[in-house]
Simulated assay, not measured.
Amino acid sequence: MTLALDRYLRGEIPLEQLPPGKYPNGMRVYADGEWEAIVRSRPLGKLERACLEAYFRADGQLGYQGGIATNEKLEARGFIEVIGPRPEGRMPNYNITKAGRNEWLRLSENL
């Protein structure tokens, strides 16, 4: 792993060629699907809940954009999906999914 990290830091190989695992500098490379499985195994955080509520309220309307990391987590959970083509150099547009609406309704019952 250390040899691969050294090659990556020297620019000899791209990030995609690093083997999955934890590296001495604290960096972590996930295997395909590993990060998504970790996200789905944990409860929703505060930002995810707030973002999911905003997508619920804006259902069908463009204009609301959550943070990049929060959107990635909600997308990994299947609660939001990309709609339309992704504009060059910009964040894609998202909309809440049926699973996302159902999850927000379930969460809002407990408020």
Rank of each mutant, 00 (worst) to 15 (best):
V29C: 03
R10H: 11
Y30H: 14
R77F: 08
C51H: 08
K73P: 01
Q17H: 13
E72F: 10
K73H: 13
E88W: 05
L15G: 06
N25G: 03
F79C: 06
A4Y: 11
K73A: 15
G89H: 15
E34R: 05
M27P: 08
I80Y: 14
F56Y: 15
E16Q: 12
E88Q: 15
L15T: 06
D32K: 12
F79L: 15
R90S: 15
A69P: 10
R49P: 00
G21K: 07
N95C: 04
I80F: 09
A54L: 08
L3Q: 11
A54D: 05
L5R: 09
K46S: 09
R10N: 14
E75F: 01
L74T: 14
K73L: 05
R28K: 14
P24L: 04
E72G: 08
I80T: 14
Q65P: 01
G45E: 05
P24C: 01
L44Q: 00
N95F: 01
G89S: 12
Y8A: 10
Y94D: 01
E72C: 08
E12C: 12
G89W: 02
P43V: 07
A54E: 09
G60M: 03
G66V: 01
G21D: 06
I80R: 07
T97N: 05
R57P: 00
W35E: 14
E48Q: 14
K22Y: 07
G26Q: 11
D59Y: 05
E12R: 07
D32A: 10
Y23D: 02
K98Q: 08
G45I: 04
P19H: 10
V29K: 14
G60C: 01
Y94N: 01
R86M: 12
L18P: 11
E81I: 02
E34T: 11
I83Q: 13
Q65F: 13
A54M: 06
E72Q: 14
G66T: 06
P43L: 10
